[in-house]
Simulated assay, not measured.
Amino acid sequence: MSTATAPSVTTPPANASRAPAPGRSSRRRTALLRWLFIAPALLYMAAFFGYPLVRNVLMSFQHYTPTTYFTGEAPFNGLDNWRAVFSDPLFTDALWHTALFTVGSLLGQFTLGLALAVFFSRRFRLSRFVRAVLLLPWLVPMVVAAVVWRRILDQEHGVLNAALQTLGLTDGGVPWLSSPDVALLSAVLVNIWIGIPFNMVILYGGLQEIPRDLYEAASLDGAGPWRVFRSVTLPMLRPVITVVLVLGFMSTVKILDLILALTSGGPADATQTLGTVTYQMSFLRLDFGQGAVVGNVLILISAVFAVLYLRANRADFGNGK
């Protein structure tokens, strides 16, 4: 009687190499292609943003003068530039003026821009024409607008003082640009006039994206206009409001041309801001190291505000808003 033997099963060794999972090479290829696509943008950012930023930071620690451009020598002086700037009363005043100018401008631009956006959201005859006319301050170059307003606010021959005297509101001309007590307020009002159209256009676009069903539901619940605005319009408009305020802050905190054309930082340094101080230290005093310090302060302020903006947006995204 023959005994049948079972066929032996060969077990592969434990250390046998495994074949690469299918699709791994294609994923690597896809990742490489993504980096190749964004490489030009990264190189552009490094060349035109990263390098100037690094050079500006290094310059703030150097004794950088016009002779440096001929000799190439800019010795490091540690924190001397920073100490000189922070101990300068002009910098302290400019920091305070920048805060007042920025907050006043943002409040005025946003409040009036939102009011106009809500007003134009209810369409009426000639609404498009009126909106187009209100866009003109935004289209006019900043320097041109400042020169025009300088003529309007002139104490002796300005149109505004002539109108106030005709109405009997003032006996003499108001020194809009020649009084240290009024000059900064005048600059804020001019900047508000310039920034209203931008706020109005962006907020108007945001209002058009709010579903009409929400307003109908609120009216059915008996909510009044103010309750509807507070409970429906503002919450739905929050992402747009954030963008408007951030962009407005970025353009206002570093403003230079408007102040230079209106008052040149005067009278008695009453309208000096961080932007004008940077210009004055770099191109009037010719101390580029100290000018770089003020520029770095502006960059730091903008960076902090940008981080807060990104965190707020992340919180809104996480909450599903």
Rank of each mutant, 00 (worst) to 15 (best):
91 F>N: 04
167 L>Y: 04
130 V>A: 12
215 Y>N: 09
110 F>L: 15
205 G>D: 07
215 Y>F: 15
201 V>Q: 08
126 L>H: 09
164 L>K: 09
148 V>F: 05
92 T>C: 03
147 V>S: 06
146 A>G: 15
198 F>K: 14
108 G>N: 07
164 L>M: 13
190 V>C: 07
142 M>N: 13
156 E>G: 14
110 F>Y: 14
138 W>R: 09
92 T>V: 15
89 P>H: 06
217 A>L: 11
129 F>K: 09
169 L>E: 03
215 Y>W: 10
192 I>D: 04
144 V>G: 06
180 P>Y: 03
90 L>Y: 11
207 L>P: 04
207 L>G: 10
142 M>R: 07
95 L>V: 14
158 G>E: 05
193 W>P: 05
174 V>P: 01
214 L>P: 07
173 G>K: 10
100 L>Y: 01
133 V>R: 10
102 T>N: 04
179 S>K: 05
125 R>A: 15
202 I>S: 05
184 L>N: 02
119 F>C: 09
158 G>T: 11
99 A>T: 15
199 N>I: 00
87 S>M: 04
191 N>L: 09
112 L>C: 07
206 G>V: 00
120 F>W: 05
209 E>K: 14
148 V>T: 13
168 G>Q: 08
213 D>Y: 09
181 D>R: 14
127 S>C: 06
171 D>G: 10
89 P>E: 00
145 A>P: 00
101 F>E: 04
122 R>G: 13
192 I>M: 03
187 A>R: 00
91 F>A: 08
144 V>W: 01
139 L>T: 08
127 S>V: 04
176 W>C: 01
96 W>D: 01
140 V>Y: 05
